[in-house]
């Protein structure tokens, strides 16, 4: 979730000229030693479980749940079954729509923050990101309160003179999309702000001085240079949306199965762990492909001479 700072969090190395022998002595002894407990924790409780679940994808389901150690490719082939491929497609459509809307809302918002007076920017950014760190369930529940038949939105419509049946806004694809956009918008604003705020203002001035219109300058200079922020934000929303479980369950009313719900069902209700594992693997593959694409976008922009100030 902090992929932005991560790219540049590669701070001080022992090879850094600032690190004198004296400093080397101060930092905890041995490069490996301090990192060891954390690395061990991640190895045992993240990497080993993930490897195990990937292995499960190739094993057979037990008669009463559980896993039998017999190799098979059935689970992976089943992911391609039209029924499940259809769920992947639905998830992709919903996640894609949420991503598009989030970027379309976040871009002007980030731009507006960048154009605000400098001393206001940290506060505006903080306020934009604050909801992101509050409870996901609660933020989703807020939309149930707003969208249900007796909810605020229907009440508002009645006040405006609407006299028909209350609209059933909840438990629809639209509600799921709105919930996803609402939950992930803060991060997209942050990602786009991060690239926009680092753009060299001289580039824009040069473009204007050379006779380009404001629109042309935006389309040919600002927009391409902010592509890494857009890509980072978009990949984030897409990945978290497609694997989402809470929003479709609460705002979709169980009517819209997404990959996340399907995995949940395989593990907790259908008791078909190997198939659930195969679905999880497919999800990780999609995620890695997208992260690879995002890295390409970032490289292309910062590879040019007009880098967005990437370290």
């Amino acid at each position: 979730m902090m992929s932005l700072s991560n790219h540049e969090a590669c701070g001080l190395r022992a090879s850094d000229p600032r690190v004198t022998p004296a400093i080397r002595k101060i930092l905890p002894s041995g490069p490996g030693l301090a990192a060891a407990p954390g690395v061990a924790w991640l190895a045992v409780f993240m990497i080993a479980p993930c490897l195990l679940v990937f292995a499960y994808a190739f094993l057979t389901r037990g008669l009463y749940g559980g896993v039998v150690d017999e190799l098979t490719l059935d689970n992976l082939l089943r992911v391609l079954d039209p029924l499940y491929a259809g769920i992947f497609l639905t998830s992709t459509r919903i996640a894609g729509l949420a991503t598009l809307l989030a970027v379309l809302v976040a871009y002007p918002a980030a731009y507006a923050i960048v154009l605000s007076p400098r001393h206001w920017q940290p506060l505006l950014l903080f306020l934009a990101v604050l909801p992101f760190w509050s409870n996901y369930l609660i933020r989703t529940y807020a939309w149930i309160v707003l969208l249900n038949r007796e909810g605020m939105v229907n009440q508002g419509l009645t006040l405006l003179g609407y006299e028909g049946e209350p609209l059933s806004l909840l438990y629809s694809e639209g509600a799921v999309v709105v919930g996803l956009v609402y939950n992930y918008l803060p991060f997209v604003i942050l990602a786009i702000y991060a690239t926009l705020s680092r753009l060299d203002p001289q580039l824009k001035e040069a473009s204007r001085d050379l006779g380009a219109s404001a629109v042309a300058t935006f389309v040919r200079v600002t927009l391409p240079l902010s592509a890494p922020g857009v890509a980072a934000g978009a990949v984030f929303v897409f990945v978290l949306s497609i694997g989402n479980f809470i929003t479709p369950a609460l705002l979709g009313g169980g009517r819209f199965q997404m990959v996340g719900n399907l995995i949940y069902d395989q593990f907790l209700t259908a008791n078909d762990w190997p198939f659930g594992a195969a679905l999880g693997m497919a999800l990780i593959l999609v995620m890695m492909a997208l992260l690879f694409l995002q890295a390409r976008v970032t490289d292309r922009v910062s590879g040019g001479r007009v880098g967005a100030g990437n370290a």
Binding site: S3, C50, L240, G243, F267, A277, G280, I284
Partner: peptide, 13 residues
């Protein structure tokens, strides 16, 4: 960045 559902089922397994 790992989807939480994947980490969840991995740890359960």
């Amino acid at each position: 960045i790992i989807p939480d559902i994947v980490l969840a089922v991995a740890l359960l397994s």
